[in-house]
Amino acid sequence: MKMNIRDSLVYGSHSILAGVLLFSSATFADQGTRLLATGGASTLEGAGGGGIVPWATLSSYAGKGQFGATVNLSEVAVDDFRLSVQGASVSWNNRIELSYAEQTFDLSTIGGELSQSILGAKVRLAGDLIYGDLPQISVGAQHKKNNDYALPSAVGSQDDSSVDWYVSAAKAWLDGPFHRTWVANLTLRSSKANQLGLLGFGGDKENSRDWLTEASVAAFLNRYWAVGIEYRQKPDNLNFAEEQDWKDLFVAYFPNKHVSVVGAYTDLGSIAGLDDQTGWYLSVQAAF
């Protein structure tokens, strides 16, 4: 049957068709059945998404009936801090994603180190990123646990673990403004996490959950390169230092369905009393 179509194309009466005899030796390895870049990148908290915002998309390219997995490494270096993340995720059926991330936060200037583990789950409830009228809608949870609680406790944190809940909607426009493909994601998160949770959960200033807004917009310059911005609202629970919203400006590269690289300029505001924490972000993901 393979030759069926090709023979007809080559030997058909059509004059243009008869001309083509270039055998492109395309091979189709077992791979995810979703389109390139729809797996997104990996966030700092392990879930699939942009860099700092989890998206409604599920990581990897696993479509119906398929399993997919990713491993990822991310580094954020701002003036007085450095965050290193090692993460992994598995997805099934373009329906459910489980993720795990280890974060290490190096207090370069102050001295010392903070770290936490994050176990995440995300379920696609409805819609599709690309097809149909509905955006893709997912809900997720992230269970976060501090590995070193001495410092968070000393600065007023109330708990060494907590769960973030979120709901996300994502939509792609294949032929968006400037005839480029655009993707937008909006996430609403209920959280008590101070600086992602690295400074514990809840605080002496405020100890209740906040609803936080997170958003990303990206434009694909071509099939492989995208540029975008992200914004993430943060709670402000601790008296000792103000916590501010995060922003970044990123460039993402998707050379194929197995690798993605994201670089960003980030503005993390004030952290632990040290203002204007800006710097760079780099994340590499391998998908299977």
Partner: peptide, 19 residues
């Protein structure tokens, strides 16, 4: 032509007048 070489979907075109 590429569809014809793709085992994932070529079967749909087995008895089809491709021209």
């Amino acid at each position: 032509y590429r569809v014809g070489g793709d085992d994932r979907i070529a079967h749909h075109f087995t008895d089809v007048d491709i021209m």
